[in-house]
Design a binder for these strands. Structure first.
Lengths: 344, 344
DNA sequence: ACGTTTACCTACAACGTTGTAAACGCGTCG
DNA sequence: CGACGCGTTTACAACGTTGTAGGTAAACGT
């Protein structure tokens, strides 16, 4: 009830409870050997003063902040927004907070971020790289816990949580083949890419074709630079203009696929009757499109969950020499209208 | 080049440069009265040791963290993802970092968040409320700089940055009227709501009708609880089923409108020929839909920019009694295909 | 009965920084 | 020549917390 407000400290609580500040600290940190009557007095004093520990002081003393960093290319890309959502929810369950940074997918900014003074604000970093590649893997050798996401760097010096791109893409393609489709177009390939999401997913596509004895036709591959809706639309327009025939399309992510679907329908083609469509990512949006979009759930929730867990384990662990772990999330096909079998 | 790494401190720099730690501190904080030769020696030592100030210690001493909080309902809602994107970019320009929290739009969590210990990690908070309402405005009387976003509480005790909902909704409606449309449906109204985005935007709609001498027809109003894509689709299906005639639709946000557009096209109606459509928010997605969506840019960038600026001003200001400010961003209509005049 | 463990509590130092006050040397002014 | 001001630098304390070491009783083992 005093006039101007000053946050209560351990000293204040200790004075009220009639103990030393260290005892108060012990109560707060659940030190076992405290007489229950003492503990109660301290807890009462804490309640009375509405005491909250000063996190700066705690972090100065202990070296821990209780905050983890999350670096993504851009929140306005739905995939990363949904990933961030999942990471924040998971972190919350573990009692830590998330500080988000955007890199724009720019290699220089990604590298800079790894040694930014801001890293001090966090106990560790979950890092979704888009601009860096395997040659840059040395930059990941940093002095703090780091969990890498994404498909740019494999076998690096850090823990890595990612998805089964090749397997999932093969399953997606097989799903279309099982519908009886043989001329399967791809939207979103990257010229010459071997690693990276596009390269790996295209590989899964080719494996599925090969397994089914379907020849690979380069005319069916739509290349794009980026993976925005407009790129998908453009690639589909080019495909239609080329006159190549196809009865299905595999978009390397949902956003691309949704863009391509618009163009297909604009051209009077029916989905799935004339052209079946499958995407990748299982964005929220894919449940609401017309038709709803069959897609691969790459295990985004699991990736977020695992990344947080692995990072917190690293933070808690004293063993710095623990070898890096490579963790793959399970995927599953989410069947929706865009690949529904023809009605009888 | 020493074996195990320990971050350099002011002491280390001071020792190398042959000055006191306070002089090093002064150099770092741009204290003016330092001999240039001394300054250079200090800077050299800083570079040599790759010194970075310890932010915890600084924040313990100074009470500032260099971090601001951003609380939004959910990042997986595109509007908030794009808002967060803009806030982070703006904060970055000002040299501060952003810590994001999700409330799920839940009133209890919103209130709890305002007094969470996490508030200590931030110098101030940008708070986008969705669950609280005007009755809760007392909860906003907190001991730290707070900038409120959203349309739930007006005239509260804090700075408030928001959009011209009524004016913008009127302009959107007038835009449809100027195309010659007279039967304008609304998607996304909330039963009985007066304040809040839905209430205010519906008011703008009614004002425009009135000004044009068009009677208000309750049959044209589609109510929804949430503003997701599926809600827009459902509301439009209900509207079509009701048999009411209309030649335009005003979706109270873009997501709703996109959901409604799918249903319209599914029903064989052409946009804009049979039904013109306009949304609200100017999501990235609206540029890529088929047809592209005319919408209101509510000044999201400006809102983010202003919120960050106003918050940092509050943080920097010593005058606690500064009266709360109510700031309205400018809006503009972004014309796209969904309201294109009929071709000649 | 006497050393030894155990439970409980405390004093003190330290984390790395910045604010305060003061000291130092040097030129200037009366 | 002493007082003063100014530019430059420093010593010291303080921010609020936790780790370390130690202290005091009571409980235990022999």
């Amino acid at each position: 009830m005093n006039g101007d407000f000053m946050a209560a400290t351990l000293h204040d609580v200790a004075r009220i409870a009639g103990v030393s500040i260290k005892t108060v600290s012990n109560v707060i940190n659940d030190y076992p050997h405290i007489r229950s009557t003492t503990k109660q007095r301290v807890l009462d004093a804490i309640a009375e003063l509405d005491y909250q520990p000063n996190l700066s002081a705690r972090s100065l003393r202990s070296g821990r902040t209780g905050v983890i960093g999350l670096a993504v290319p851009e929140l306005s890309l739905s995939y990363f927004a949904e990933l961030a959502d999942a990471v924040i929810r998971s972190a919350e369950r573990h009692g830590v907070t998330v500080l988000i940074e955007q890199t724009g997918g720019d290699r220089a900014r990604e590298i800079e971020l790894l040694t930014s003074p801001r890293r001090q604000l966090t106990d560790g970093l979950i890092f979704s790289a888009l601009g860096m590649d395997s040659d840059d893997s040395e930059y990941l050798r940093v002095g703090y816990p780091l969990v890498l996401l994404g498909e740019r760097i494999f076998g690096g010096p850090t823990d890595h949580v990612t998805m089964r791109n090749v397997d999932a893409a093969r399953a997606a393609t097989e799903h279309l083949i099982a519908l009886g489709r043989r001329r399967i177009a791809v939207i979103g390939a990257h010229e010459g890419e071997v690693i990276g999401s596009a390269g790996l997913r295209l590989r899964g596509y080719r494996e599925a074709l090969e397994a089914a004895g379907i020849p690979f036709d380069p005319a069916l591959i739509g290349y794009t630079t980026l993976w925005h809706r407009s790129n998908g639309a453009d690639a589909m327009r080019a495909l239609l203009a080329s006159g190549v025939e196809f009865d299905a399309v595999f978009g390397l992510n949902d956003t691309l696929t949704l863009g391509a679907m618009r163009v297909l329908q604009e051209a009077g083609l029916r989905i799935p009757k004339d052209v079946a469509a499958i995407g990748f990512d299982d964005l929220d949006e894919a449940q609401y499109s017309l038709p709803t979009l069959t897609t691969i759930d790459p295990g985004r929730e699991e990736i977020a969950e695992t990344a947080v867990r692995v990072l917190l384990e690293r933070i808690a662990s004293t063993d710095l020499a623990l070898p890096p772990r490579e963790i793959l999330a399970d995927f599953r096909i989410v069947e929706r209208e865009s690949t529904a079998p023809a009605a009888a």
